[in-house]
Amino acid sequence: MSHGNGHAEAGEHRHSPAMYIVGYVLSLVLTAVAFWLALTHAMAIGPLMWVLMILAGLQIIVQLYFFMHVTEGDGPPFHSVALVLGLIFTFAIALMSIWIMSFHSMVA
């Protein structure tokens, strides 16, 4: 999809459709499992949270590996910078949201 002077990143890596299908199925399975666990209240809320978080982490890895080809690439490692930044934002937002929403000091 790149044009003109941007040909450097296109064409070098060829992937078989199998990789995409495996990734697609894996991400569907991970989503379905998480949805089913939450819908049927299969576990107590505490362990459920941990399981959901692990499933979400796996989902990220599947997306990055199978679709975004995070292990490949040439040129400067821009994607590593983006990944690190993304992880910082994700953790900061999630943890700070928990902090904000716990209303622990009850001063309202």
Partner: peptide, 8 residues
């Protein structure tokens, strides 16, 4: 003003 607390 939600009242999350002085620290937040």
């Amino acid at each position: 003003t939600m009242g999350a607390g002085a620290d937040v």
